[in-house]
Design a binder for these strands. Structure first.
Ligand SMILES: [Mn+2]
Ligand SMILES: [Mn+2]
Ligand SMILES: [Zn+2]
Ligand SMILES: [Zn+2]
Lengths: 143, 143
DNA sequence: ACACTAATTGCAAATCATTTGCAATTAGTG
DNA sequence: CACTAATTGCAAATGATTTGCAATTAGTGT
């Protein structure tokens, strides 16, 4: 949404890093703001193709957003790569059989991360983390 | 190694699930037992190609091992998919710049997982989890 | 040990996601 | 409004993974 308060945050990040705010980039950003779940290139492309935006541009935009830390990859064990907005942090339980995804917010990683960092010879801070749970859902357990 | 005590555990799992213990499958299993880190198809193939094992067979074997829960995918944000042995559970800090990987074992997910499960309408137990930390390593922070 | 059969393999070709080269277009600056 | 580097679209290339199919083989039972 154009009126999402987070929209400005992300556009500012992009500007600060020296990226131009082009039409395709704003379109892709809005797809993420309007679909609060992990998205892959194909999903994004289907949403912007009508507006004369090429598939290649989607891929390149995802790369730029990733390097600007506007989005980051989510590990869902699917065939293609999924991304979500950096500031929409949450996690998932994924069914190993049918792919059902449930979100959850509770996350106690920060303390664990501190411990790990304090012992690490190579790292001194964490940028972000990925935590996903995998299971067989109740429905698949019966079938 | 033929003498790794875990080897029998994995071969029993495969037998129980009805998979034949073929030469290529044992070769691939041994590659995982001898290289305790996340491996992709190409790494495995390079280790077994001398022994007349096709790349396709490696891919098919990885699929079978995954469905038998002998290995599972690890999210490292690389171009190809990485796997590790299910019973070698540990986690990673990955440098977003240079790709440096550091292992760590400490993991307090079990309690968190219990909480999540107790509130979930769709899931009643966790099979396994994926937890990776992403950061810029000390070296890359300078350069 | 030998025969049987379904599972597995290797090879070649196909497919799918993602990347690259390049000429045309455009955002941001002054 | 002009300038210029960044960005885009199209077509072709690449790289990973998958599929079809005939030949081979593990596991089962004789
Ligand atoms: Mn998430
Ligand atoms: Mn691990
Ligand atoms: Zn399910
Ligand atoms: Zn680094």
């Amino acid at each position: 949404m154009k009126n999402d308060p987070k929209r400005k945050i992300y556009t500012e990040i992009l500007k600060t890093k020296g990226y131009k705010l082009t039409a395709p980039r704003l379109l892709v950003l809005d797809v993420f703001l309007q679909n609060r779940k992990p998205l892959n290139a194909d999903f994004v492309y289907e949403k912007v193709r009508t507006k004369k935006t090429d598939r290649v541009t989607v891929y390149r935009t995802l790369k730029i957003f990733e390097s600007a830390r506007v989005i980051h990859q989510v590990n869902l064990k699917k065939d293609s790569v999924f991304f979500e907005l950096t500031k929409d942090h949450h996690h998932h339980i994924v069914c190993l059989e049918c792919g059902l995804i449930e979100d959850f917010d509770a996350c106690t990683i920060d303390q664990l991360a501190k411990n790990v960092i304090s012992k690490s010879p190579y790292f001194s801070s964490i940028d972000h983390h990925s935590l996903e749970l995998f299971a067989i859902c109740k429905k698949c357990n019966k079938g």
